[in-house]
Design a protein around this nucleic acid. Sequence first.
DNA 1: CAGTAAAGGTCGACG
DNA 2: CGTCGACGTTTACTG
Lengths: 239, 239
Amino acid sequence: MRIVVATCAVDYTGRLTAHLPRAPRVLMVKADGSVLVHSDGGSYKPLNWMSPPATLKVCEPDEAQRAAGATQVWTVSATKSDDTLVVTLFEVEQDTSHELGVDPGLVKDGVEAHLQKLLAEQVTLLGEGHTLVRREYPTAIGPVDLMVRTPADLQVEHDGERHVAVEIKRRATIDAVEQLTRYLELLNRDPLLAPVRGVLAAQTIAPQARTLAADRGIDCLVLDYDAMRGVDDPTSRLF
Amino acid sequence: MRIVVATCAVDYTGRLTAHLPRAPRVLMVKADGSVLVHSDGGSYKPLNWMSPPATLKVCEPDEAQRAAGATQVWTVSATKSDDTLVVTLFEVEQDTSHELGVDPGLVKDGVEAHLQKLLAEQVTLLGEGHTLVRREYPTAIGPVDLMVRTPADLQVEHDGERHVAVEIKRRATIDAVEQLTRYLELLNRDPLLAPVRGVLAAQTIAPQARTLAADRGIDCLVLDYDAMRGVDDPTSRLF
DNA sequence: CAGTAAAGGTCGACG
DNA sequence: CGTCGACGTTTACTG
């Protein structure tokens, strides 16, 4: 990993063209040749970058560039496409290299997977007496997030419904409704399951998704992640 | 901007929980308190990060952490949420700070999209007094790049024309003329818009396209990308 | 390797 | 300020 702090101008050509005027910035060159151009603000996304795999070639500035004060010109080329990033360096404040080695990697606990696990444990959020059949219930077109059994005493109320198929999202959009619709069509052909009700469960549900769901007879369930996590284990989430 | 190269372990708690085991990494602390944790591979996305606005608090390591070799503990807290990033530092190889100032900002966009944006801002290139109705003006068959209003005093000159529909291309071919023709046919049925003039705007216009456009009563406008970009920000182009 | 869904998405436009 | 949609999306997973 090479870290350069310098005044620079950057030009990117690829899917689009982009230009960064001359200003002080931080450049990171990773072991695979990828390059990141960061400023002192914004979020984690660099102002400009080159994705790996890529190769960096350092050139001497030409006459005009040298006249403008340029000291180095980097040409970063993508290996698989013809994307190029040209970095013209002026005053270089720092230029250091470090051997980091391969990172052991991130251990993370996802959101949708976690919501699925929590709702599987708190399946009565779908209604008193409901019981989990299984998570990732397999169908020909993919697994349904949750398959749930409707208790006998509620089957009458719910027009004979015997099962509930649940699609879980962090943020539900129309796509989620379409997805669940496809599952329901398939599941309702299964005499061992039908009739199957559909429930779209999410932390937030887009208005259009809600409308489409209503139109399709699919129920919506808004999930309170923090509350569900709290029920799960109030002490487990200090760190 | 503070840049630290150090062996560290990272714990994130927020929408999800994530953990990075002890390893050498690069830490960037931006002026707004945001923090990026980078390894020597992957793409531009950090292994872990904290989005601005955030505050960084440096703590002394506790007994157990010190016993493990920790020298510093950073607690980065989001201002608006309760997300926290805890960075435990061990061997510190480098720790430098740099004053970068506010970045002049990125000039970016796909060429066609950029041309659209520029022409939207410099809509008087279509004629003095013209004003933008909107970009991506929606129609049943897709959005028109620009919808522009003809000033009242020019409507007479232009045979009562009230609006201009603009199709923008980097390089205009016959296809672009056909596309614009379809839009115009539709738009001219709208009593709130009609009569609508068509303008094909591009960096280069193929001779056949120019001929067909003339035949259809569509005007051609050659765009000077660099000049338009120069008007947009005359100081931004060193190269 | 390709296709698809998720992302602590991020970012910008629009109402 | 929230919502919506695109992104040089990137990333993870699955067949």
